[in-house]
Amino acid sequence: MKILVCISKSPDTTSKIAFTDGNTKFDENGVQYIVNPYDEWYALVRALEIKETSGGNVTIITVGTAADDAVIRKALAIGADDAVRIDAEATDAYFAAAQIAAYAKANNFDLILTGKETINYNGSQVAGMIAEDLDLPFVSLATKLDVNGSTLRLEQEIVGGLQIVEANLPLVVSCAKGMAEQRIPNMRGIMAARTKPLQIVPAVAVDAFTVYESYTLPDAKKACTMIDPNNMDELVNLLHTEAKVI
C-alpha cells in the first residue's frame, strides 16, 4: 500500500508564545519545533505498522521551508521511506491542504493520513480540505484503523460512545490518540535517515483566502480570591456575578 503521511511542525510545548510585526506574526525567536505529536505518534506510526504487516511504502510530506528539514529527518528516522517538502511557508490550512492535494493527485496514494490537528492552531482543517480537493472519502478523528484488503475499518470516539465506520481505499483519515503508540527513533533509524530521499517540490499557485489580522494572548492568571468557608453566600454570589459560571 502506498501511504502518504502529512507531517507538520509545532512549537515545543514549553515554548514561550509571543508575537511580532504588530501582533500579526508568531515570534519564532528561541522557539524549538517538534514534529506535531498527532502526526508523529499516531498517523506516522500507524502507517509504519501497516507497512510492516502488509508491505508498501510510507512517504511523508510537509509544506515548509528548509528550516523544517529537522522535523522531516526525525520522521525519516522513525521509519518513513522517503520525504517530500513543498517548498513554501504554510501560511494557512487551505494553502497547506492545496499543496498536499496537488502533490497527491499526481502521485496516486492509497491512503493519506494526517494527525487530527496541530497542537499550535488546533484547526483540524487540513485533512478535510485534502479530501475535498481530491474528491476522496474522509474519516476524521479515527482512534483505530484496521486494513482488510481494500476496505478499512475505523473507530471514532463520539459523545458517549464509539462509532465504527467502514470505508474503501483510497481515502483520507485524520488520526487521534489511541491509533498507535509513540516510537522513539533508534540509532539504526537515525543512521538510515541520513541517506533517505528528500524531494523538494516547488509550491503550486493558490489563492489566499485568509489574512491574519492580529493575535492576542489569553488574560494572565488572576490572583486567587479567598472566601471564608462560613460565607457560602458570597461564594455563590461571586461565581454568579464575577466569574459568571453559574
Binding site: G30, Q32, D69, A70, R73, K74, A77, Q182, I184, P185, N186, M187, I190, A193, R194
Partner: peptide, 21 residues
C-alpha cells in the same frame, strides 16, 4: 546561551531520542 544553535540537526535528534528513551 542558546547552545542548541551550535548543534547539528542530527546531534539534536540523537540527544532528543536518548532523552525520550
Amino acid at each position: 546561551y542558546n547552545m542548541d544553535d551550535l548543534l547539528t540537526e542530527e546531534q539534536k535528534l540523537v540527544r532528543d531520542a536518548a532523552r525520550a528513551w
